[in-house]
C-alpha cells in the first residue's frame, strides 16, 4: 500500500520534501515506516530511531498499524518554547 507522510524540520530537509509517498506492505506498523524511511533516504538512517511518528494529531506507538489513508507525520524531537 502507498502511504503519504508529512515531514518536518530536519527530516524534511533531509528528504527535500515536506510530503513523501512510501510503498509499505499491507498492515505495516510504525516500526516498518521507520525502516522504509531510512531505506528511501539513507541520510535519515542515523536519526530514524529517534523520529517521532504521529497519526492524526496523536503520537503513535511502534506497534501501531498504519491505514492506507491515515494522516501520518514524521519528525525529529520537538524544540518549541
Amino acid at each position: 500500500m502507498k502511504v503519504q507522510v508529512k515531514l518536518f524540520a530536519r527530516a524534511r530537509d533531509i528528504a527535500g520534501a515536506d510530503l513523501v509517498e512510501l510503498e509499505l506492505p499491507e498492515a505495516a506498523s510504525v516500526a516498518d515506516l521507520r525502516t522504509a524511511l531510512a531505506e528511501e533516504y539513507p541520510a535519515m538512517a542515523p536519526i530514524a530511531e529517534r523520529l517521532l511518528v504521529a497519526i492524526g494529531t496523536d503520537y503513535a506507538t511502534e506497534e501501531q498499524v498504519l491505514a492506507p489513508h491515515a494522516e501520518i507525520a514524521c519528525f525529529p524531537p520537538v524544540s518549541g518554547g
Partner: peptide, 8 residues
C-alpha cells in the same frame, strides 16, 4: 509544551 507540542 517543550516535549509534547510539535514545534521546532
Amino acid at each position: 509544551l517543550k516535549v509534547l507540542v510539535p514545534i521546532w
